[in-house]
Each structure stands twice: as C-alpha cells, then as structure tokens.
Design a protein around this nucleic acid. Structure first.
Length: 215
DNA sequence: GTTAGGATGATCT
DNA sequence: GATCATCCTAACA
C-alpha cells in the first residue's frame, strides 16, 4: 500500500543536521524544479554523502575556493558543479553553516513534468533513464552553474527554482548503503552512498572502475 | 546482453 | 598538466 505523497515543504531544519542523518532521510523526498516552462518533480532514489573538509572525496577537502564556496554556507542551499568538461551535478548543502558537507543527488524518478525533462535529455528513451545518474539528473532538471547557491528552503517557494517536499520515505528495510561511486583512496572506505532497493531508477551496483588514462 | 574508449573544460597543484 | 562525485555510442558476444 502506498501512502499519499505529502506535499509539505521541508524546512531548513531538515538540512541543519549531520549529513549522514540527512542523506538516507532524503530518499523518497520530492524535489521540485521550477523551470520557466513549468515544474518538474523528482522522487529521490539514490544519494551520496560528502562530509566536509575532512572527507578526501569531498570538493571541500582542500578548503574553501570560489567554486565550492556554497558548500561552506548555510544548509538547504543548492551546490552545482561542472565536471568532466560536459556535465553538471547537483548537491544539497547540509549541517550547520561552515560544516561544508553536502549530499550529491545521484538518481530519481520523474513524477511530474516528464515531457519537459525528456526535452532537456535528448537521447533518453525510457522514463527510468531520465534521471538515472547524477549528470543525467541535472540535465533532466536543466540545472547548471547559474543555479549554484539557490535556496531550496526559501520562504517564497514560488520565487525559487527549487523546493523539496516531504514526499513518501521508503520503508527503512528497503534502504541500502554502500561505497561511494568514483571516490578512491581513503574516501572509498566510507559506505556513504544510499539508495532505495528494488527501484528501477537505481542502476545495479557497479564497483568503481578507474578511468583509463588517455594515451 | 556487455564493455571499451572518446568527448570535453574548469579547477587546482 | 593531471585530475574529475560522468555519459553515450560503437563494437562485440
């Protein structure tokens, strides 16, 4: 039996907690992306936690820079970065201001505005592919660096590009966790990737395969 | 069905 | 100049 989706917006206090508490709690929540063409809604199914300057996998590892400045700011804001020369990825800042921790949104299921999302994602054929992977997710939602620093907990939700609703959290026994993708070294030891088991939008676990060195 | 490798540029050392 | 929290396509079984 499926509970009705709770459309109450999550307040800033939800994000003002340790990132390892927030990350699994984000599963099943609904991210609303207000685009000029209309809203897109996404139920989160896979996330990764990045725990501040002490985490070798985090962009904050070597301190504050122009790029990651948003991570060092107040919780509930959106940190967007550009990577691999082509892609954007989207995070939600967690913990008290200065903690510099964040949750990477890795995958989700589009629950509204699928046509719009499909327009942003040119090559996607199946609905479950639309936001399967962090760069796909950002592309489907039309997220780029221009949205870096957006407040997802704004008091004026209609004026903000993002909002996060209570949604329908999964049963606790369907939440899985494991090593993070693409994080090597000491950072790989932390099982800080969280996903909802048996969800078609979550790709089967793939151990990190180091990229080939260009010859 | 699976896998190899190319695309592409900001950021940081 | 190396790295990077990736995706897509072509080629193969």
């Amino acid at each position: 039996m499926i509970a009705a989706t709770d459309r109450t917006p999550l307040g800033r206090s939800f994000f003002d907690r340790p990132v390892l508490d927030v990350a699994p709690d984000l599963l099943g929540r609904v991210l609303v992306r207000n685009t000029p063409d209309g809203p897109i809604e996404l139920r989160l199914t896979e996330v990764e936690a990045y725990a501040g300057p002490a985490d070798p996998g985090s962009h904050a590892y070597r301190g504050r820079t122009d790029r990651n400045a948003v991570m060092f700011g107040p919780p509930g804001h959106v940190y967007v970065y550009f990577t691999y020369g082509m892609w954007h990825c989207m995070n939600l800042v967690c913990g008290p201001e200065g903690t510099a921790s964040a949750v990477l949104l890795r995958a989700g299921q589009i629950t509204a505005g699928a046509d719009l999302a499909r327009k942003h994602r040119r090559t996607s054929r199946r609905d479950t592919d639309l936001a399967q992977g962090p760069a796909r997710l950002a592309t489907a939602l039309d997220v780029d660096r221009a949205l870096d620093g957006s407040d997802a907990c704004s008091e004026d939700p209609d004026g903000s590009p993002f909002r996060i609703l209570t949604g329908t959290p999964p049963a606790p026994d369907t939440i899985r966790n494991g090593p993070r993708t693409g994080v090597g070294g000491d950072g790989a030891a932390h099982p800080w990737r969280f996903w909802t088991d048996a969800d078609p939008t979550v790709s089967p676990y793939r151990p990190h395969t180091p990229r080939k060195r260009r010859s």
